[in-house]
Design a protein around this nucleic acid. Structure first.
Lengths: 169, 169
DNA sequence: CAAAATATGTCAACATTACTGACGTAATTG
DNA sequence: CAATTACGTCAGTAATGTTGACATATTTTG
């Protein structure tokens, strides 16, 4: 058995990489914190943010498609979606082809909030990139993509419009 | 005004970096998912994980110090801590110097679970690193550290035992 | 066309994790 | 000994998630 290998996949002598575990925890906490503060001023939480984000990114999304992305139950979605619709951040129309479906769209007000939230988070990324050299962004994307479950990776790449070639380091 | 700058910090024409936002979201979801599944078999949640993790990393931690790391209220901490103590994953002893303090330690059982959880997450990191070239780990750490709030960065570096020199790209 | 399947909405009950506020107790400090 | 500190606990509330059951509108199928 090779000792000191970089992968340390063996079950015997593996040493936890505490630094990465804790960095990921703190980085994500501060990342979502940006959005949390803005959402609070509207009386919204993270659940509202996720719904607003994916509807704004994929206008015309149906309830079923949204549930599949968020992986929550329809009862759970319904509460936050109802609030977003009641306060005119999102609009639901009967499906164009199949009227049983409801297609979701952001209103101008909803689009603006979604964009403001995304820009807050973009700002944190941009600042982080400043100290990371010219290929920092590609490297960060490759790292994050590699952290995603392998069977979900293709779907995530489609969602973000990433070409397969960009995935390689 | 410089247009097309890589930082795009200006308020006018900034374009959200959706790819990074969404990758970070999915990567973190799958990362914590590993631990969630193991914790479920013990009837524990993420709150228990965080407590167990930091106590195992810093034996002798007091309640106040733990609250400061987790940034939750003592009432919130108390419930999960009580369960972890009741099921002998964590032990609380009166403070060595000041008996008002309670110092927290993991039991052998608690250490084992903490280690298993950390190894699950380490495994995901290790696999991710395989496709990222030899300096993937340093690059990932630099990226994540740069994503942390600047005023928290020093403290996080101390916690993970990172020297200042390693922070530069 | 009637029956079945599909997409969604809704009601009820419950769990986890967080919060605020108030009060109690033990130990230390001045 | 009085004040402060560290912690525990009780009560009430909120956000987000769950399961299960049932209603409604629409489309598809036999």
């Amino acid at each position: 058995m090779k000792s000191g290998a970089s992968t340390q996949a063996a079950g015997d002598e593996a040493v936890p990489i505490y630094a990465l575990i804790e960095l990921f925890f703190f980085a994500y906490r501060d990342f979502v914190g940006d959005a949390d503060r803005l959402l609070e001023t509207f009386g919204f939480g993270r659940a509202h943010h996720r719904v607003l984000h994916f509807v704004s990114r994929q206008p015309g999304l149906t309830i079923a498609e949204l549930l599949d992305i968020l992986k929550i139950t329809k009862q759970s979605l319904n509460r936050v979606l109802k609030e977003l619709i009641a306060e005119s951040f999102i609009e639901a129309r009967a499906g164009a082809l199949d009227r049983r479906h409801r297609q979701l769209f952001t209103t101008p007000k909803g689009s603006r909030l979604a964009r403001d939230l995304a820009l807050l988070q973009t700002r944190r990324f941009s600042r982080a990139m400043e100290g990371l050299g010219p290929d920092g962004r590609e490297r960060a994307m490759a790292f994050l993509l590699a952290m995603v479950d392998s069977h979900e990776r293709k779907r995530v790449m489609e969602l973000i419009g990433m070409k397969a070639a960009e995935a390689q380091s």
